[in-house]
Simulated scan of single mutants.
Amino acid sequence: MTNSALPNQRWDIFCAVVDNYGDIGVTWRLAKQLTTEYSIHLTLWVDDLKSFSHILPELNPKLDSQVQHGVTINHWTEPLPTPFIPADVLIEAFACNLPAEVQHSMLECHKKHKSSLGAPAAPLWLNLEYLSAEDWVEGCHGLPSLQNSGLKKYFYFPGFGAKTGGLICEKDTLPNRMQWQADPSNRLKLFTQLGLSGINLTDTVISVFSYESAALLSLCQLWAQSSTPVHALVPKGRSLNSLTSLIASPISELQAGQQIGFGNLTIHILPMTDQQGYDRLLWSCDINIVRGEDSFLRAQWAARPFVWHIYPQEDDYHLVKLDAFMDCYGAEMSPELNQLWRGLNVAFNQEQIAATQNEWQKLLLNRQALLDHAQQWPINALIDEDLASRLVQFVKNS
């Protein structure tokens, strides 16, 4: 598909910021990719610009409208700061509730189009859903839902199968990652840029971006007993809430670049970084512990062994989603390696202390096999088109 597949089309994406960075992280990557690779005139409406600015430092949270990386970013307030004019495509990210004035504008456009053939049609209305590897996703992807207003809304499901909406991955992500990892000095340069000191090339470096977990504390206690240096790179936030017993200072007083030593473990406090910087961090670590959707997917493109701390849901439904992904990711592993990787992820997510420590020690003995699989996985996962390519094709077909 060429970049001129949808020339001069205008799209709107609405995103409500949830959990600070998860939803906006995915949405911002998609907005940039659609603008850069497909020349779409895109307006991104965001309700929390302050949280957004943490991953886009050049963003000015005080402005109602601005352009960043070719994307028009508008502050989503109610009422909207500017009159809403329906575009060609409207995407509500992750079932956010569209403002009444937006739905009213779409309905009026729909009525005019029905009464006059020359009037523009209402936007193609899509709900971008959360990523899941569950089997039912293929059957639900792309289905329309007739709203009470008479408008149709289509459900767009990202996924790992050929009949889903695909996975977000910019065209230059994998080539850039391979070039970065080909030169080991890149990671030391990055650590220096981040204000992290005392890390040698042969040390084990682990990035940690998790929710609160007693399993994380148990891993830190295990790493402290390692025979070789271990460095845990942890941003200020929820992961550190699990480590208060190891850290003398209050979490709120910790500064980026600060180090906490505990046996052979050094905990480094990471500064906040933009998305490109976070990608490079994942590329530079030996093992990554990630959470949510955006960091979970970027850890896969990093081609490094990883642990996914999935967001807990009622009735442990998150474990069903975890199991579905492990089936997918582990399909090409040997049975023994698959069992090891599954065991670690399950133990960590269920906060099974002894099991988490035992499975981690097994992981260290099989790191090369896990690394080999992690390097092949992105190639397998992207054998078909990525999410943006499939989304553009879906719009063309609709």
Score class of each variant (00 low, 15 high):
residue 25 G to F: 00
residue 27 T to P: 02
residue 27 T to N: 06
residue 28 W to I: 01
residue 30 L to F: 14
residue 30 L to K: 10
residue 31 A to R: 03
residue 32 K to H: 08
residue 34 L to R: 05
residue 36 T to A: 13
residue 38 Y to G: 01
residue 42 L to V: 06
residue 45 W to I: 05
residue 45 W to H: 09
residue 47 D to I: 07
residue 49 L to N: 08
residue 51 S to C: 14
residue 51 S to V: 11
residue 53 S to V: 01
residue 53 S to F: 01
residue 55 I to P: 00
residue 56 L to P: 00
residue 56 L to I: 04
residue 57 P to H: 11
residue 57 P to Y: 12
residue 62 K to L: 15
residue 65 S to L: 13
residue 66 Q to Y: 07
residue 66 Q to R: 09
residue 66 Q to D: 02
residue 68 Q to H: 12
residue 69 H to A: 13
residue 70 G to M: 03
residue 72 T to C: 10
residue 73 I to S: 01
residue 75 H to P: 03
residue 75 H to V: 07
residue 78 E to M: 11
residue 81 P to R: 08
residue 83 P to M: 12
residue 85 I to P: 03
residue 85 I to Y: 13
residue 89 V to W: 01
residue 89 V to A: 00
residue 90 L to R: 05
residue 90 L to I: 12
residue 91 I to M: 12
residue 96 C to P: 00
residue 99 P to F: 08
residue 100 A to G: 13
residue 101 E to C: 08
residue 104 H to P: 07
residue 105 S to T: 11
residue 107 L to N: 02
residue 112 K to Q: 11
residue 113 H to E: 10
residue 114 K to V: 04
residue 114 K to W: 10
residue 117 L to G: 06
residue 118 G to H: 01
residue 118 G to P: 00
residue 118 G to W: 00
residue 119 A to F: 12
residue 119 A to S: 15
residue 122 A to Y: 08
residue 122 A to K: 06
residue 124 L to S: 09
residue 125 W to Y: 15
